[in-house]
Design a protein around this nucleic acid. Structure first.
Lengths: 347, 347
DNA sequence: AATAGCATTGCAAATGTTTTCATAAAATTG
DNA sequence: CAATTTTATGAAAACATTTGCAATGCTATT
């Protein structure tokens, strides 16, 4: 059935079907315009020759490339993987394929991969976060390509965005512990340099605690990269001294994992001697033991909305106004936080 | 500097640089063929106009698309995410961008997304695993596009492959427990229907145990999907009865996580009362508490080798022979397995 | 000084498709 | 049954680029 001759183009198909190339093209793109009998002949010819249409040629004609560019820092990171997955599913349902690129947390790199994606004439571009190089912003503007920033919400964003408010996330985490009656609260966050998400989260935490007239001693503030091992180490130090907090806010769920590990190692029982709350609600956080209380940032929803926005934005190619969509965070109270009333143990 | 006029093509650049379009093309693609002075003029013109070359037009001339298709079941799964990342890094270093698609464990779906990638004239295709629909195999053959199967090694594979031998992985896990002196061994695996990886792993386990004259009672064999919650449930049942094994082999690290959870909940201490071994060595498995003994399948290495192979294979477009590369699995003995000599407790 | 050789550049054809316009055939109307 | 509308199809231009070939001007060789 399949033909292995070298080049099967629309003309080959046309010859086999004994019609013109134009009719083949119409059979594929505007089937209602062609006589059902001829259409059948064309379809058979397509099958017989094994023809696969050439998007490149379509693109040259000003057609959509049916391709979207997505640039993430890395996908080897559960929360981005979830995001990429749901974004992909959403746009794939509209016939778009994803041209993926990573910049490994290097904004200069991001500019170059962005250029590369534009060479392929992607119909739209999705970026993670709101911090990008001036060159990148200019490029996107000059090319006039629909763009969306995923993950962060910011009312003053320069480009359209779909995401959660990280300040709010930090605030919700702190609020939860306050509501449970905690007053001796510590926190562990990653370095905020070049990471606006972490910066905003910690801002929300500090603001909320300050509003409640709580001061956090320096020894209860630790810094840790997003790794269980790093966090465990930091938390061993923080929790190991005689005077320790009754609750810990962690910059994300991975850090919270490390904190739990450290507590277990020190024989501090959770939550009866220490409450721990994360941010993110990563895959598995609810299933681990003990299941992690956390502030959920709904990656799946964000990916979907971002996909919807971009697809839509490509549809009405006229308007190019900045739109912003805030996806609410949700407190997930699970097994690692408890009220101060139930506090037990040596401290 | 940047020009926002609608279409900036190679002719626009040519006019600005006061040369022909051919010279601009040569300046970009064969710089050594053009006079340094003219080249400079062209480069300035490119910068001034903000020109971005159109890959689609290049592709039409039989040039490479500089694009590789990658089809995975899902990327929302840490081990695939790691694989995709390393594959991407490797091919990006050679100037290729990744056209990503997922089929959500549906082989029929895979065929359709494969077609889509071929429409974009990808220079090569990477698939996960060795099970694919007949249609997909035929399509790849008829299009004569370089292809690689990632993840599994099979000496009889129909297409080129880079990956580990899952039978061996199962075998190594079982061997480890035998070496530690365990005789009462149970296992938890996912359904093997449409999952040749799981099927081969369980095969390796059974073979190795049989060779050591060990029979595993039905009640020590459980089935669980790849989820911590599902596995915990299955393991609660398996471990909850009076007579339980001294060691457990888990189909992958996620299942092992669930098993650990279940053991903790039942007050069975690890490893002094129960040894647990996983397969995979997912991100975080070595950092969790207790750190998981597992059989490492080196996703990063596999991704790199696969990328290298595909890039190479595109280079020498002549030969299209099937090649197979086996990446060895490695036993990672950590805190969840111990010798039978140290066995303590009620059982 | 004439000629050969080389470096540099331009012209124009070719790539695979879509779409506008024109035309032919068929269907509808009075 | 003639006139008109509708339907179906083909011819050809357009899209942005690359490249073989030819032309130009220059350098080196004799």
């Amino acid at each position: 059935m399949k033909n292995q001759s070298y080049k099967v183009d629309i003309i080959t198909v046309a010859q086999v079907a004994r019609v013109s190339a134009a009719t083949v093209s119409r059979s594929i793109n505007h089937p209602e315009q062609v006589n059902p009998a001829t259409r059948k002949r064309v379809e058979n010819a397509i099958r017989k020759t094994g023809y696969i249409r050439n998007r490149a040629a379509q693109v040259m004609h000003g057609r959509r490339s049916a391709t979207l560019g997505l640039i993430v820092p890395t996908i080897n990171y559960s929360i981005f993987a979830e995001l990429v997955q749901s974004f992909n599913d959403t746009v794939a349902a509209h016939g778009f394929a994803l041209l993926l690129a990573t910049h490994d947390y290097n904004l200069k790199n991001e500019y170059h991969v962005l250029r590369k994606l534009l060479e392929h004439r992607v119909d739209g571009v999705a970026l993670i976060g709101l911090e990008h190089s001036e060159d990148a912003f200019n490029l996107l503007e000059s090319q006039n390509v629909p763009t969306i920033s995923i993950w962060n919400f910011d009312p003053d964003s320069r480009i359209s965005c779909v995401g959660s408010d990280n300040f709010e996330a930090g605030s919700v985490a702190a609020d939860h512990l306050l509501t449970l009656g905690h007053r001796k609260i510590g926190y562990v966050f990653p370095p905020t340099e070049g990471n606006d998400r972490a910066r905003n989260r910690i801002g929300g935490v500090r603001q909320t605690l300050a509003d409640a007239n709580i001061t956090v001693p320096q020894s209860w503030q630790a810094e840790s990269l997003y790794s269980i091992a790093a966090s465990r180490k930091a938390c061993l130090a923080l929790l190991g001294s005689g005077n320790r907090p009754t609750a810990l806010i962690c910059g994300n769920d991975t850090i919270a994992h490390g904190a739990i590990s450290a507590a277990m190692e020190l024989g501090i029982s959770i939550p009866s001697q220490l409450s721990i709350i994360g941010i993110g609600d990563f895959a598995g956080s609810g299933e681990m033991f003990p299941s992690l209380s956390t502030v959920r940032i709904p990656a799946k929803t964000i990916g979907e909305r971002a996909g919807d926005y971009l697809v839509n934005s490509i549809g009405n190619s006229g308007s190019r106004t900045v739109e912003r969509l805030k996806i609410a965070v949700e407190l997930q109270q699970r097994a690692t936080t408890d009220t101060i009333k139930n506090l037990k143990g040596p401290i």
